[in-house]
Design a protein around this nucleic acid. Sequence first.
DNA 1: CTGTTAGCGCCTTCAT
DNA 2: ATGAAGGCGCTAACAG
Lengths: 331, 331
Amino acid sequence: MPGTYKDIQNITGLSLSTISKYFNGGNLREENRLSIEKAIEELDFTVNAFARGLKSRQSHTIGILVPDLSSTFNAIIMEQVCEILRSHGYGSIVCTCNGNQKAEKSSLSFLLDKMVDGIITIPMDETGKHLEEASKRGTPVVLIDHLAANFKTDAVIVNNQEAGHMAAREFILCGHRHIGIIAGPEDMDTMHLRCSGFLEEFQKENSRKAWVCRSGLSMEEGYDSVKKLLSAKHGITGLFCTNYELTLGAYIALQEMHKQIPNDISVIGFDNMLLSGILNPPLTMIVQPVKQIAVTAAELMLERLEKPDFPGTRIIELETQLLAGASVKPI
Amino acid sequence: MPGTYKDIQNITGLSLSTISKYFNGGNLREENRLSIEKAIEELDFTVNAFARGLKSRQSHTIGILVPDLSSTFNAIIMEQVCEILRSHGYGSIVCTCNGNQKAEKSSLSFLLDKMVDGIITIPMDETGKHLEEASKRGTPVVLIDHLAANFKTDAVIVNNQEAGHMAAREFILCGHRHIGIIAGPEDMDTMHLRCSGFLEEFQKENSRKAWVCRSGLSMEEGYDSVKKLLSAKHGITGLFCTNYELTLGAYIALQEMHKQIPNDISVIGFDNMLLSGILNPPLTMIVQPVKQIAVTAAELMLERLEKPDFPGTRIIELETQLLAGASVKPI
DNA sequence: CTGTTAGCGCCTTCAT
DNA sequence: ATGAAGGCGCTAACAG
């Protein structure tokens, strides 16, 4: 049973309002300040967040809702967001929805019932319909990764189409005409844009052709995709992998098939994460500014909390970067 | 501004206590129940968790404190723990401490200040000194991965020493006498036990010899360790990798050096995670019962919350398993 | 089964 | 600069 203002009052003889002022940055006589501090020490006192929240209607807690944490990208974004929020006094209540839209909706309600002051999410349901419940309660929402069709709110996204363009240009520059794309799911717009961006640029000349292999998002599926694409004998000279796990799986498959990179086949990967600095030759990759994404999302939220009435919504689009390696070779 | 019991009262004409009873599982006349439900619908009412917490002293929120989420093992454990807790109505406030003990201590205070009902943690500081603050406040703690020397509390651990034994026996069985261990940090007891367990068993005969390569925990360091171990020309015929990332890095290094598994070198990995079902030949691995660990940790916590006065502490030791693959070959 | 009442711990006018 | 008093929304006796 922790102490209360009353206990401090009993020790110091000061009134509750003076004590409250101490904790909320008012001016008090130096001698009173000290005696309160002594009492705090003695009692091991900390302010009761429930009582405070009851008045202030703020929990200093943010809900984080993501599809899953097995994806390294999500896990790292999450980790960073939590850390930044925490350094501003905000706790992060984390929910995953396992790629399940129904779970997404109920997780959102769950978070709101926990009185979170805001929601940062990588939405699954791209209509954003489930988010209406948040705005109904006046809880701000920040989106990561993609916008929601019917729900305007602050967001941090990345130019995935341009990411596809960059990869295509790199291959084109080196004279490649037959490329396999390890594309992931078509109904996920980030993945789709990377792929369609690539195609858009690459197929400007129709002497060039790309084969798209759709799959899930996992390492295993990257691995399988390579096996499929290469066994089909399309004469593919390069591979574009559209996320981290797919890249890793593809790399392993290539090694296993004794395909030398870039002599036998050129490769452009996506997101370096833990891969950076390992592979030999270093992989040419499209990288997302992970840190930046996390910082921006956290900042958008913190600013929104400070100025709930700030008009309009801010959509921050960050650029991906081509990290030049040595895995793409002129044909 | 969400509604309150008073609003429901105004609509239904019922008293506050009847309404309270509705929300806390009491018996009321069917007709009253219905009219309350109608009012709830109309108001979009949800119970105010602050007010409820103020009385009940429970937040229905658990603090999760882990070193980091970039480690896939941690991320997946975390994900599962959060999910289970959530299915019991508990939110999870997640903090990482980046392997920093000072941050660990302050994160713990942070979580306690958020009024969490319990703490589930993979502790860094193995004395457990920082956890005293939790017990001082009467907040239960469940440990994952290792016990804390000076802090007795419920815990889920894994028999890491036996994991080392199993790996050693597998190599011995196949007649290997020269093994490299990709061991990770010596001062981390899980990692240390896997290694010392291995050595204990393997070096029972001194015709057998193992070379230990210490490092951090990352994929990159697994990669480097292999390069180091193999370039030293110890005549190593097998490798034991002691965590997931190290295994992955080691595998990549071997591929790159065109070492065939198991013809050129035998390998025992650790934790399959995303690797399962990919590698060819399938890797022989020591696997931790990840799901089981998460479930057990969550259950220990939930049971402790139900019976705060249950005497004694429960330490659940789970077994690792040798998942037979085809990466260890008789010499 | 329902209503009345008195707090839970903190914050905030309003006086002093 | 400090104190007194009422209320945030919900719960839990206690009465009826």
